[in-house]
Amino acid sequence: MKPAHGVWAFILFLMIAHQDIWFWDDTTLVFGFLPVALAYHACISLAAGFAWYLATRFCWPTDPAPSAQRRENA
C-alpha cells in the first residue's frame, strides 16, 4: 500500500471514529475535570493535526511554483 493511501485511510478512520456513540451517555470526568465526550473529541482534534501532517508529507499536490518561476525567469 502506498503511504498516501494509508494517510487517506487514516483520515477516513478519524471521520468514523468521530461518531462515538459509545460515549453518548458516559459521565466520566477524565483527570477529574474533563468530561469524556470532550476529552475524546479533543483527542480527535490532535489526531487530525497528526493526520494532516502526514498528508502534507505524502499526499501533497504537485507544487507549481518552481515551473511557474522558471517561466517567469525565461
Binding site: 470532550l38 473529541h41 480527535i44 493535526g49 499536490p61
Partner: peptide, 18 residues
C-alpha cells in the same frame, strides 16, 4: 457542542485547504 462542530471542523477544514 465540541464534537458537533469543533472536532469535525479540524478534519474537514484542513481537508478543504488541501
Amino acid at each position: 457542542v465540541y464534537g458537533m462542530l469543533a472536532s469535525s471542523s479540524g478534519i474537514i477544514h484542513s481537508l478543504c485547504f488541501l
